[in-house]
Amino acid sequence: MNQPIRLTVNGELVTAAVAPRQHLADFLRETLGLTGTHIGCEHGVCGACSVRLDGAVVRGCLVYAVQADGARVDTIEGVSDSGEIADLQAAFATRNALQCGYCTPGMLLAAQELLLVNAAPDRETIRDRLSGNYCRCTGYHAIVDAVEATARARAEAKR
C-alpha cells in the first residue's frame, strides 16, 4: 500500500505516493529521475548514494522515502545548480580528483559538509571525514588535494 509523501527536493515541492519499502535513493532516481545520486552497495557502506536530508548528509540507501516526508532533500543536481559547491567542483576538475565519477556526487557532498563545519581542515582531518566514501579510482590523494585547495581558497576569499 503506497504512502503519500510531501517533501522539498532541491527547492521544489514534490508530492508522491511511495511504497513503504522504497529507499530514498531509489525514490530520487526512479521516481524523480535524479540519477546523480548513485547506488553503490545498498547497505550503507560506500557513500555513493549520499544526499542531504534537512541539511545533514545521509546514506540515501539507509533512509526510506517515507522517512523524508516533510523534509528538505538536496541532491548533487541541486547543489550544482545553486552554485553552492561550484568552487569545490572546479577544484576537483583542476586536480582531476575524479576518474569514473561514480563516487563523486557523494564525495562532493561529504567534503562540503566538512568544509561547512571546519574551514581549515588538515589533510588527516580531510582523510578521516571522507573515509566513509569509497573511491576505487583515484587513490584519494587528488581528492584530499582538491578539498584542501578549496578550504584555502574560501579562507582567502573571506579575508
Binding site: H38, S80, A93, N96, L98, C100, G101, T104, P105
Partner: peptide, 21 residues
Amino acid sequence: RAVPRPNLARLLQGRGLYVSD
C-alpha cells in the same frame, strides 16, 4: 600538458549517463 578532461563537468554535477541510470 595537464589539460583538464572534457567530460568532467557532467560527472561533477551527477549528470553522467551510466547504464544503471
